[in-house]
Write a protein that binds this DNA or RNA. Structure first.
Lengths: 265, 265
DNA sequence: GGCTATGTCTCATTTAGTGAGATGAACTCG
DNA sequence: CGAGTTCATCTCACTAAATGAGACATAGCC
C-alpha cells in the first residue's frame, strides 16, 4: 500500500522522496524497512531508491540494520530530534522541574507543545507509581483534544483557530478516542475558569486521571503545557490541590527564567 | 563561515542541501537560524533556499519561529528521533529498568549505543542525587573513548575496528577531553577482565565517577551499554558492588527479553 | 509613510537526477 | 560446496526538474 501522499507535497521531489523513505522506515518500527517495503510503498525506480538510501545513510539519517537488506532510522535524527524538542529552550527549563515533581509526588509529569493539529510530548518524567498514558515517551504525538495537556493548549488559542483544529480532528477523536467535541468545549471552559485542565474522559484509559496547566508567554499565547497523570485512586482532593500547586509553582518559575532567554539576544 | 562539507557528501545534491539546512538550523540552538545564517553558510541561491525551506516545513522538519524570518527544527524530527533511538527495540526495554535503578539507588543511569565513531545517549534517568555528566539528555553524542559507556562499547569490538575508531578520535580525545589513548586501552583491559568499565579520568568532571556494563547479543557483539554516574563521594566499595549488581541483573533480564524480539518475525 | 528584510514569482538554462537493464557481491539453502 | 536469490552498484542516454538572476510583493518597524 502506497505511502500516504496526502499533504499536497510540493517542493523538490528529491526531498519528498527522501522524506517518504524516512517515513516508511519509521513505520517499520525497530525492525526498520526492507527494499521491498520501499519499492512497494514508493513510486520511483530502484536505482533512485539506492541512491537516496546511500545519501541518507551518509548524512546519518539512516543506518543499515544488522539484518542485511533492512534499514533503520539513523542516530542523526535522534540528535536533531533532541534539539527540535527544545523548542524555545523550554525543554531544558522544564526537565529538572519535571524530575523534581515526579520525585516529590510519585506521579508522572509531562511537557507538551503544540504541533499543528497535534500535541507532541517534549519530555516525560515518570514517578514511583506506575501509570498508563497515551504517550509513552518523548516524541509521542496526539491529536489536540486528547488528554489534559491538549485542553490546556487549546484553551488559549483564538476561538477560530481552535475550531479549525477541532473540526479537523473531530473524526479521529470520536473514532479512535471516543471523545466528543462538545465535551472538549466543556473542559476548555473549565480550564479557562479554573486555570487548569482535567482532560476529557473517553473510553480509553478509564482508570487514569490527570491534570494540566498551560505555559503562557507574556502575551498570553501558549508555549506549551505541563501535565501529570496518575491512577484515579490517587487523585484525592488533597493530592490534587498539592500537585496542582507544585506544578503552578514550577511553571511560574520557568516562565520567569524564560523571559530572560526566550526572545532576546 | 560555510558549513562543514567534510564528509565527502555524495548523493543527490538537493538532499545534501536540505540536510545542510537542518544542520545550520540545529547549530542555532533554540533560537534557530535566520535567512542570513543560511545564505552565509550555504552555497546556493536564495530562491532555492526558500524552496527547500518550504519543502522542509511542509514535511514537518522545520517550523518557523515566532520571530519572523527565523526557522526552528520541526517536531517531525522529534518523532522520528524517538523512533531512531529505539534501535533494535533496546530503548523500550531499557526505559523502565533505568527508571527502577534510578529510583532505587538515587544515581543517574544511561543507555548508550554506538554511532560510528561516537557513542549516543539513547535514554537517561536521573536519580535523586544531582550529577554532572558529559551528556545532559537523550541525543547527546560523545566521541568513543569518553566516559565509561564508551569503554564498555569499545571493549567488545574487534581490535582493528577499535584501533581505527581510537586513532580517528585521538586528537579530539586529547584536545577536548584530555584523555590519552593509552589510558583508554588500560580501561578496556579492565573491562574485559572484570566485566565492567569505570571510564577514563580526564581533566573534565573530576568530581564525578561512574560505572558501565555492555549489553551483548548472543554472539558477543555490543548492542549498547548501560552506565551510571554519581558523585565520587558516593562511590564506596559497597555502593559500587550493589549498583553494579543491580545493573547486571537488569541487563541480563533485558537481553533475555530481547532474544524473544530482536531478530525474529 | 518610507525603510529594510522576508518571502514569492517568472522564465530561460542546463545541471543533475532519473529509468532500464546489466553486472557484481553477499548471503542462504539444499 | 555450488545453485539460487536478493541486495547493491554501475553505465549511459534522456529529459524532467532543480537552479540562478533579478524583478516583484508583503510584512514588520521606526
Amino acid at each position: 500500500m502506497p505511502v500516504n501522499e496526502s499533504s499536497t507535497a510540493s517542493g523538490p521531489t528529491t526531498l519528498n522522496h527522501a522524506m517518504q523513505i524516512l517515513q516508511v522506515t519509521a513505520r517499520g518500527g525497530h525492525r526498520g524497512a526492507s527494499i521491498d517495503d520501499y519499492l512497494n510503498a514508493l513510486s520511483f525506480s530502484r536505482p533512485t531508491l539506492y541512491r537516496l538510501l546511500k545519501g541518507l545513510k551518509q548524512q546519518g539519517f539512516l543506518r543499515s540494520s544488522p539484518v542485511r537488506g533492512r534499514y533503520l532510522l539513523g542516530y542523526e535524527l535522534l540528535v536533531l530530534g533532541a534539539q527540535a524538542g527544545n523548542g524555545a529552550g523550554l525543554r531544558d527549563l522544564a526537565r529538572p522541574r519535571l524530575l523534581a515533581l515526579a520525585q516529590r509526588w510519585g506521579d508522572s509529569f509531562y511537557l507538551f507543545a503544540r504541533d499543528g493539529v497535534n500535541a507532541v510530548c517534549l519530555e516525560v518524567q515518570n514517578g514511583a507509581y506506575p501509570v498508563g498514558s497515551f504517550v509513552r515517551a518523548t516524541g509521542g504525538r496526539l491529536p489536540l483534544g486528547v488528554g489534559q495537556a491538549s485542553i490546556a493548549l487549546l484553551a488559549y488559542l483564538s476561538a477560530d483557530e481552535r475550531d479549525e483544529i477541532l473540526s479537523h480532528n473531530a473524526e479521529r477523536l470520536i473514532d479512535e478516542y471516543a471523545i466528543a467535541i462538545a465535551d472538549i468545549d466543556a473542559e476548555i471552559a473549565h480550564q479557562l475558569k479554573h486555570g487548569y485542565a482535567r482532560g476529557v474522559e473517553g473510553s480509553l484509559l478509564p482508570e487514569y486521571s490527570g491534570l494540566a496547566i498551560p505555559i503562557l508567554d507574556h502575551s498570553g499565547h501558549p508555549l506549551g503545557a505541563m501535565s501529570c497523570s496518575m491512577l484515579k485512586s490517587r487523585m484525592t482532593e488533597d493530592h490534587k490541590r498539592e500537585v496542582l500547586q507544585g506544578m503552578q509553582e514550577e511553571v511560574a518559575a520557568m516562565v520567569n527564567q524564560a523571559h530572560g532567554l526566550l526572545y532576546l539576544d
